[in-house]
Design a protein around this nucleic acid. Structure first.
Lengths: 215, 215
DNA sequence: GGCCAAAGATGATCTAGATCAATGACGCCC
DNA sequence: GGGCGTCATTGATCTAGATCATCTTTGGCC
């Protein structure tokens, strides 16, 4: 599933030569919305959030990335300034790859191009789902969707739980609304709590809630 | 800007052989959300909207495409069912290209791969902007953003104006809210009307509105 | 184990936009 | 040129979720 899956030996070598590994702490920034992109990042470990800000300072998350995923490829392709800010949520090791190496590989290795296309397509799919949710579904349904999604991938939710604030930034809600909705799910036996962590108790009912069932 | 821009002669030939042109009327469907994709469409003329539906039947537009643009490439890449329905808004000629031809070209022609990556990246960018708008900005700001965007490209807005319903489906609003907001902009001299068409009168103030200025 | 900052919960109130219900204005077609 | 369906407007009302204001928990950490 890595970007190099299926890549030619030449490209693998080139990447190995060019990569600049670095350790990042929580809160550090990989790139800033509006800046010009210098290259691509590959996450070895840790977790990174990407978000956009509205002119009046409101924040909307547009993606979460974990081990094996890469960031900044989009900007390399479009040549436009970074569309979002990437900030480290959970500390880890992240490699940097310069622009030229990546672009060269994209033009010369079809399977790498394929991998990047797949990643873009998957992101697009997720962004559009989120758009539908945020535009048309009620708070509880969006939350249900997020919780189900998190509980599927150990990467999110289980390992290092999201804060209410992060959930709010994903779902397009306020912290208070998330808190209320999550508590109410707890009262109804849909989810349980263990310290700060939330775990899914009743998947079928959550699915129904996600699907728009009024309660 | 077409998908074949920069492509090898072999690929251009293959596409020319394989393409199945067809005329479509308003209201016809190119593909349906949830169906398995059979190939890709290239729009020669006309306009197509793509939308997703929520389980309870609400509709959210995720894209508009006009001449020179292509559809369905994403599904070919992911291999997943169609994420949205594509419906013809303004009648025109659209070519179909079968799955194998396209995938073969993607693997053998780097510049075509590049074109598809660019298109995906651009769609992703737009989807994420829309997500931020819908999640965090007020109705008038979203509308201002849409009107500005439309007035920039003759392709949209000018040629064949969007109905209130379509604007609502793009902005995540109801028809009534769109109508009210648009009228209010008219009263304030931001836009003018000419029959059913809306045209921008005061771009700077619309920009400010888009940026979150309360009025 | 006690302190403190960050995270979460919860109540009271406010409001943008949805919803419901008519009404008006084209454009079109016989 | 009158009738009709589609699109647009407008008013009245309702409500989900935002906002504002505290208060409580939790989890480091010395």
């Amino acid at each position: 599933m890595g970007i190099l899956c299926g890549a030619t030996a030449a490209v693998v070598d080139a990447f190995d030569q060019a990569r600049v590994p670095c350790h990042y702490e929580r809160g550090q920034t990989l790139f800033l919305e509006g800046a010009t992109s210098k290259g691509m990042f590959c996450i070895k470990s840790g977790r990174v959030k990407m978000f956009r800000s509205s002119p009046d300072g409101k924040v909307q998350m547009v993606g979460l990335a974990g081990a094996g995923q890469f960031l900044g490829h989009r900007e390399l392709i479009t040549g436009l300034p970074c569309s979002c800010t990437a900030e480290v949520l959970a500390e880890g090791d992240i490699c940097f790859l310069d622009r030229e190496t990546v672009l060269h590989a994209l033009d010369h290795d079809p399977s790498m191009a394929r991998n990047v296309m797949s990643a873009l397509a998957a992101s697009l799919d997720l962004a559009e789902s989120r758009l539908l949710e945020v535009a048309r579904m009620r708070a509880s349904a969006r939350l249900a969707s997020l919780l189900l999604q998190c509980s599927e991938s150990d990467r999110l939710g289980t390992v290092d739980p999201l804060t209410r604030e992060e959930m709010a930034q994903i779902c397009g809600l306020t912290v208070e609304s998330v808190s209320r909705a999550v508590r109410s799910m707890g009262r109804d036996g849909l989810v349980g709590f263990e310290g700060r962590r939330i775990f899914v108790l009743d998947r079928p009912r959550l699915e129904r809630l996600k699907t728009g069932a009024t309660a």
